[in-house]
Write a protein that binds this DNA or RNA. Sequence first.
DNA 1: TGATATGTTATCTT
DNA 2: CAAGATAACATATC
Length: 271
Amino acid sequence: MPELPEVETLVQQLKRRLVGKRISSVEVLDRKVVDVKIKKILPTKVLKVWRRAKSIVIELEKGRFLLVHLRMTGHFHYLPKKQQSTQRIRESEKFLTARFHLNNGDLLTHNDIRRFGFIRLLDKKKIEVELAKLGPEPLSKEFTKKKFRGILNRRKKANIKTTLMDQHILAGVGNIYAQEALYHAGINPSRKIGSISPVEMNKIYVQLQKVLNSAIKHHGTTVDDYVHIEGTGGFQNYLAVYGRKKCPKKHVLKKVNLGGRGTYYCPKCQC
DNA sequence: TGATATGTTATCTT
DNA sequence: CAAGATAACATATC
């Protein structure tokens, strides 16, 4: 599922392909997912593409922005003009939500099997309001250990794993990387924040950044169905606990349910 | 067939 | 009122 590293990968790839180009027309095939108002502002140039939490922001002309959230099953496909055989186009036809035609003849398509994601058109004020609801970016320079301990302490009675995944507390971490970071930090995911010492919090901070950076380097984790524009991620080969039976030290893992999500941990390495 | 998986949010409970 | 917990959303896969 796309979390911070997966979205970051996609953003880098979209940036290369879209920035400076013009969107000449858009076909909206699923109005629940894609805001049809996009059609009214065409043609428009793509000025910037960036990431905030698990969202993709595409900045257009005249202070307009596309806010894209892939949720679980959102995908982009990019078809350069030369590769637009009927077969390639048909690949993602079934769950297609929109086709973006670029001025150079290239085609960007978006599809979403579960239709949980969205592509919304917002003005500057509205997007600022939306993004302000999110917690700090875990990889930003301003995000210090001290700040991390500060935001955790706002949720003393909640468990650490669910809190790491709460987008209002911390932006971009989901079920995979919360579990991985906690394994490497040696912390049981069920621990209440109130029982976690400052030293342990620092450990989580370090491991969380480490695992996120490493996953970005490997272009994210592909389980089930995440794919970026250039193929699949590679971090699934480095997962310590998520979806596994044994930890790297060959201990048998346990699986519990936290916040309605499956959570793997090693009873020997994490306490 | 029914359980499971997923991110986010609306809504319920404490 | 707030913190925390849970159901709901859609659909494929096992």
